[in-house]
Design a protein around this nucleic acid. Sequence first.
DNA 1: GAGACTGAGTTCGAAATCCGAACTCAGTAG
DNA 2: CTACTGAGTTCGGATTTCGAACTCAGTCTC
Lengths: 147, 147
Amino acid sequence: MNQQGQPGSAIEETLRVVGDRWSILLVRAGLRGIRRFDDFCDDLGIARPVLTERLRRLVKFGILERVKYQDKPVRYEYRLTEAGLALSPALVALVRWSEEYSQEVSSETTLVHAPCGTELEQAFWCRSCQTTFGPNAVKGVGLNIEA
Amino acid sequence: MNQQGQPGSAIEETLRVVGDRWSILLVRAGLRGIRRFDDFCDDLGIARPVLTERLRRLVKFGILERVKYQDKPVRYEYRLTEAGLALSPALVALVRWSEEYSQEVSSETTLVHAPCGTELEQAFWCRSCQTTFGPNAVKGVGLNIEA
DNA sequence: GAGACTGAGTTCGAAATCCGAACTCAGTAG
DNA sequence: CTACTGAGTTCGGATTTCGAACTCAGTCTC
């Protein structure tokens, strides 16, 4: 029911862009301040040709931008756009899940509320009710969370 | 700096499991109530051998469980475990991002706060401060969000 | 001004993964 | 006896991924 010509739902499109082993890690590296080709390469251990292709794709979809930072030997670096930064909730959710459920390497808590240092809790916020709530109270077309 | 023998951070491990085009969509399908092989197949348009391998991997990592639901012709179905359900915040974050930034198919709002119907806002919650806050106030080892 | 170095990529061939289409296999229904 | 269902498996070909080595412009060191 899902021909390749058809657009599919928005999330399918999104996962076609960031749904691979590297893209999310590239965004995470970007959040950690990494911007240059060789630094991405060293940090992630990604193969260079794959990095080239991923960076191009993330630029194409508006998650990174390629910025000239020096002229004489002309050099470019990659910075997160607003859309790229907006992926941080998804990234945080994944990091949290990893900490709780990943079988490898029981890691310590690595995400905290900066002002007070308390371990982070993720929630949703309803502007009109002025309350936070968990995923159980989310209702959506194509996503009905129960149990 | 990231040999394949080494464990890497928890999120790298996690993305090795769910970081592909299909796994997250399988979880989403699970949340929509899909449980059977052919239904996953039809719903996602995934190739059967790939589906076989993904289901096995998700079972192996505790995200799905394979449950016998009938005896005479013995048949199994796949259900989300607690860990699988716990991926919903990440999924919701991705759906939200998709709605806001994905270039394809300007979709309507599909995620709302069930009790009141208001469009969903995502945030973090600090138990000790009793406040919600955005990703800017998150500080973490290996994840420093600024800007 | 010769040689080493830097940053951002390309090129290469081997290995792994993905794909659709067709097949299997046990059991049921007509 | 034939058709159908559900959950896969098998096949060969196309695509993607990999590490290692190479390129290329400019700069730095002696």
